[in-house]
Computed example of a mutant assay.
Amino acid sequence: MIVSDIMTTDLHTITSEKSVAHAAERMNENHVSSLIVVEHDDVIGIMTSRDVRSSHPNRIVADAMTSETINMSVDQSIWDADRLIRNSGIEEILILDEERLVGRVTREAVLMRIAEYTDPLTGLFRAPYIQSIGERLLKEGTPFHLLFIDLNNFGQINKLYGHPFGNDVIREYSNVLSDLMDDRYDFLSRYAGDEFVVISTADDNHVFSYLEIMEKPIDIRHVQISAAVGHVNGYLDSDFFSLSLRELMERASLLSTSAKNRSVSRPY
């Protein structure tokens, strides 16, 4: 999912010598919360409803606008847009096709689309997120660590303690994983059921420390919960870039199953 899928091409512009009052009128007329400020066909800023509220009506747009715009290219992912919006607190992103302005994406549009790919139980992104990240990194030729995490004996836990307790296990373990992640190089999703996937561009030492924590049993209401982790290391595997993401996921999943079969301890 890329930003061009959710952008609007309905662009409303204003020139910098117009008054703030005029900008407010344009926004009301067109039912928009911002105007793109242009001079000689070049974008020099953005006038938002926040800028209007904090400025005197008689000021000119050049003095009231936000001069530093946030731009993305049409082929960047909505996950990139979500991270950019959350980190910067901006309300709108301008979308460029090479150097040409072709659309805009609002915070509301991004958050609405992101919500469709968010797991309601854990708050984590679901499988399409990690697939998008992995495919992008492979396309860029960027190596990464792929971790496939599968909780041990989860079906038996549900049978012994009930599905509400099973939901508690999923939530608690997802919190453990979330606390480990670093936004600079880690990507986490709930893949399916009791399975999670992490993609990380961190160095080996970081990832090995993750593995140690992920595989360590944790207590949830006096019940021990553990996981089996399959690890594919894109920095060491010679055939890494000859495989598709699906094939890498299958390899990591099989490694997780092997780790599960080697486990002799019961998590309950």
Rank of each mutant, 00 (worst) to 15 (best):
I2K: 15
T8P: 10
T8G: 10
D10N: 09
L11T: 05
L11N: 15
L11V: 11
T13K: 13
K18V: 04
V20L: 08
A21P: 05
A23I: 01
R26D: 00
M27V: 07
N30I: 01
S34T: 04
S34V: 05
I36T: 14
E39Y: 06
H40Q: 15
H40I: 09
H40L: 03
I44C: 15
S49I: 10
D51Q: 02
S54L: 08
S55N: 10
S55I: 04
H56C: 01
H56A: 11
N58A: 14
R59S: 15
V61E: 08
D63N: 11
T69L: 09
Q76G: 03
D80R: 08
D80L: 15
D82G: 05
R83K: 15
G89Y: 08
E92G: 01
E92M: 04
I93G: 02
I95E: 15
I95R: 13
D97S: 10
E98K: 15
R104C: 15
E108N: 14
V110F: 07
L111D: 03
M112V: 12
R113A: 14
A115C: 05
E116Q: 15
Y117Q: 07
Y129W: 12
S132V: 00
G134T: 02
G134K: 00
E135T: 08
G141W: 09
T142K: 09
P143Y: 08
F144A: 07
H145G: 04
L147F: 04
L151G: 01
N152H: 02
N152E: 02
N153V: 13
F154Y: 12
G162T: 04
G162M: 04
G162D: 07
G166I: 01
D168A: 07
D168Q: 11
S174E: 10
S174P: 11
V176F: 01
V176H: 08
L180C: 14
Y185N: 14
S189H: 05
R190A: 14
F196Q: 04
F196P: 00
F196A: 01
V197M: 01
I199M: 03
I199H: 02
T201A: 10
D203A: 11
D203W: 08
D204S: 09
F208I: 15
Y210G: 13
I220Q: 05
Q224D: 05
I225F: 00
G230S: 00
H231N: 06
G234F: 07
L236V: 09
L236H: 12
L236G: 00
L236I: 13
F241S: 06
S242I: 10
L243K: 13
S244D: 07
L245E: 02
E247Q: 11
L248G: 11
E250M: 02
E250C: 09
A252Y: 02
L255N: 06
N261E: 15
R262M: 13
S265F: 11
